[in-house]
Amino acid sequence: MGRFVRLAETDRPPVSLEIDGTMVTALAGDTVQVAILTNGFALRESEFGDGLRAGFCLMAACQDCWVWTVEGERLRGCSTEVAAGMRIVTKGSTWQIEPS
């Protein structure tokens, strides 16, 4: 269940990834944004307390779809292809300030 609705190209190989600790399935060739929004309803929380965001332009212009990985990396959802084993976080941030 998610925000985006698949209308075509549904016979691609599945790709497993983790979103907020839950394993979900996307399809090979999905963007990270599509992988998240076919399995959920938002990508991130606004930094300024005005609620959830799900991206906006899908063409790498608005920069509203940056998500965190568990490892503390940032991915631009609309222009990064999903990869098996990705671990995405849509709530808060995973930014660690202490050097590892």
Partner: peptide, 25 residues
Amino acid sequence: WTLPGVFSLGAAQIALKAQGCAIGS
């Protein structure tokens, strides 16, 4: 307009063209 589910018109087209998805039901 910042609510999840609001996308640009171009985004709506890209979702379909490049990903085979609609932005909602």
